[in-house]
Computed example of a mutant assay.
Amino acid sequence: MRRRIVAAAVACDYAALGALADEQGKGLRFSFGPDKDVARFWRRLEQEHGAPVLARLVKILSLPYTKQDELYVWPSAFREKATAEDFAALKGLYPDEQLQAMRHEGSYLGLRAAITGTGDWQLAVSGD
């Protein structure tokens, strides 16, 4: 699933990302708002607001992960007691000041993704 998400994101194929999000049932958490369509939501963020969502998704899915119960979660900076190395791996993904603030607070609040061991994409969200 991780490789398929990356391939769709690299191709900017929002429809494929939407299909992957719902492949094992509607359950992908991608927003804390009322949005229901991940493809439309991410396209709007990228095209209207200039947010590099797909590029960030590709980058975080290339980083080390952490395991939380049955979930594989990227990046490893999302885990409790994330290390300096976990945050260093995020350099260039967010401004240095933002990464330093997250590290100081002890909580990574950037884009993260989670996939179950059976390949169910559960999470691709930023914030808390």
Rank of each mutant, 00 (worst) to 15 (best):
V10L: 15
A11C: 04
A11Q: 07
A11G: 05
A11P: 03
D13I: 00
D13S: 03
A15I: 06
G18Q: 02
A19M: 04
L20S: 03
L20A: 02
L20I: 06
D22R: 12
E23P: 09
E23V: 11
G27Q: 06
R29D: 04
R29L: 09
S31L: 02
F32N: 12
G33C: 07
P34V: 06
P34K: 08
D37Q: 07
V38H: 01
R44K: 14
R44P: 13
R44L: 06
L45M: 13
L45D: 08
Q47Y: 07
G50K: 09
P52N: 06
V53Q: 05
L54D: 06
A55Y: 11
V58Y: 04
K59L: 15
K67G: 14
Q68G: 07
E70T: 12
E70N: 14
L71C: 03
L71K: 08
P75H: 01
A77W: 01
F78M: 10
E80R: 13
E80F: 10
K81F: 11
A82G: 03
A82R: 05
A82W: 00
A84H: 08
D86V: 02
A88P: 05
A89R: 13
A89D: 14
L90K: 01
K91F: 14
L93P: 06
Y94R: 00
Q100Y: 04
M102F: 03
R103C: 03
L109E: 15
L109R: 14
G110P: 03
L111G: 08
L111K: 08
L111S: 01
L111N: 04
R112T: 07
A113C: 11
A113T: 05
I115D: 00
T116I: 08
